[in-house]
Design a protein around this nucleic acid. Structure first.
Lengths: 245, 245
DNA sequence: ACCTCGCTTTGACATGGATCAACGAGGGCG
DNA sequence: CGCCCTCGTTGATCCATGTCAAAGCGAGGT
């Protein structure tokens, strides 16, 4: 994916989906003054559990994970951060989770103190942040259902369905195409940490889904889905079609 | 627990912890006009997944669960709702989860449309709602770590630790006492649904913890913890002491 | 072209929790 | 007082997933 450099808000690919989405021209001018862009390489730590954060930021491009590592090495990823997602929260100095860039990531950053003032004075940012927090809350709870009650196969299927939906939504589509190819932002290990499984089980499930004809694996990081609806049904789509993100 | 009836906001036990916490006297007057109280018996459905909600509400007393039931009957509880927690979200007509009263519950209700207008016009409510949503988001993510990576024993221990912390916080204490007795708001089955386990496994873990001297069980619904710190360590307390809720 | 290194896959086996089944204990009601 | 009904506990067995081990496989460097 080639990216042209971003210079100003009106030119920003996440202008209408990030924390600034509801801002009017005047509010945007204020944001414009205090924002700065930063690009970090894959593997960079954007936040560490318990450590103070100087900046709050939105992801403009790339992918990051939010995770907790227990003393004994067990790790659980609690969120996949993609463009327009927000890192950090106003009113708290540190993140309770590690946030790590999985690919090269470009951020739109705000100095924490300045942003907190802004939230207080700019209702459009507070309401947007509220909406985003509520959306993520729904998403986190959906994921809790997956972690708590789904089999390994269903976990992998759910992940693919959610990723496809999220990609479609970002492209402005209502639902994913019948057939599509997904690029996995995560390695098998990172995926296992997200799914609450081991690498081995995750890998076996991919193999099993391939043997069942539900997916093809042109490369380790690419998944071709010949029939999305069938995949969604296998994932245990009971209700509405799931929430985006 | 005996409750005296609530009649006005200034008299309300959740006045300083609910969605209205940041409201000043004038804002409270507006809320006062549109609120209504309702008490429902244990077992009542406060919301059903996908069904439109007429009211948004805060829990004043009692306990409710938020859960998803899959077609095949598997159920995962994604949140335990206690006094001051908010049910529903402005800007959306229906809840993605079932919300069910576990004990008798008293609610402070707002007609949905009126409340949504209020959120738009009252920044103190929007910021409070944002803070509450972000707190619940942290809590949901903590729970995802428990569901994804913890053993059955650790799940039960984590639940007890969190419940004790939440009770302590509600009593205005910083941390739970050394020794304390908890009343469980949930039956074994409801607990199992929350922990992502079966009833049998949950029950066996209680027995095991009792045999290990970590808890005593004066009745099915009561747990005496002789040494909270020991319990917390067994629960796998690596870091800070955990987030409240 | 070959070697090496990291990631992924596959295999063999162990085990924690689910499942199936039965028994116990308390509480309300006839 | 005793029956029944619900909830919780305990036991026996099974199976999905974890664990340990080794073998592909692809990319980059020499």
């Amino acid at each position: 994916m080639e990216l042209k450099p971003v210079n100003a808000c009106h030119d920003c690919p996440i202008r209408h989906s990030a924390v600034c989405a509801e801002c009017d021209a005047d509010e945007l001018k204020v944001l414009e003054r205090i924002k700065s862009y930063k690009t970090v390489p894959a593997g960079a730590h954007l936040a560490e559990a318990g450590r103070e954060m100087e900046f709050l930021s939105s992801i403009i491009s790339g992918c990051a994970t939010m995770s907790r590592t227990l003393e004994d090495g067990r790790r659980q990823t609690v969120g996949l951060l993609l463009p327009s997602n927000f890192i950090g929260r106003p009113g708290r100095a540190s993140s309770p989770y590690d946030v790590e860039a999985i690919s090269e990531v470009t951020l739109c950053r705000f100095e924490r103190k300045a942003f907190e003032d802004l939230v207080r004075s700019t209702p459009h940012i507070a309401t947007r942040l509220m909406t985003m927090a509520l959306d993520e809350l729904d998403s986190a709870r959906e994921w809790a259902v997956v972690l708590g009650r789904m089999s390994a196969r269903e976990k992998v299927l759910s992940f693919l369905v959610r990723l496809a939906r999220r990609n479609a939504a970002q492209m402005g589509q209502d639902a994913p195409e019948d057939a599509l190819t997904l690029h996995l932002p995560l390695s098998r290990e990172e995926l296992a940490d997200y799914l609450g499984l081991t690498i081995e089980t995750t890998s076996r499930q991919f193999t099993a889904l391939r043997k069942d004809g539900l997916i093809e694996l042109p490369s380790n990081r690419d998944v071709h889905i010949p029939d999305f609806d069938r995949l969604a049904i296998e994932a245990g789509e009971d209700e509405d079609g799931g929430l985006i993100a």
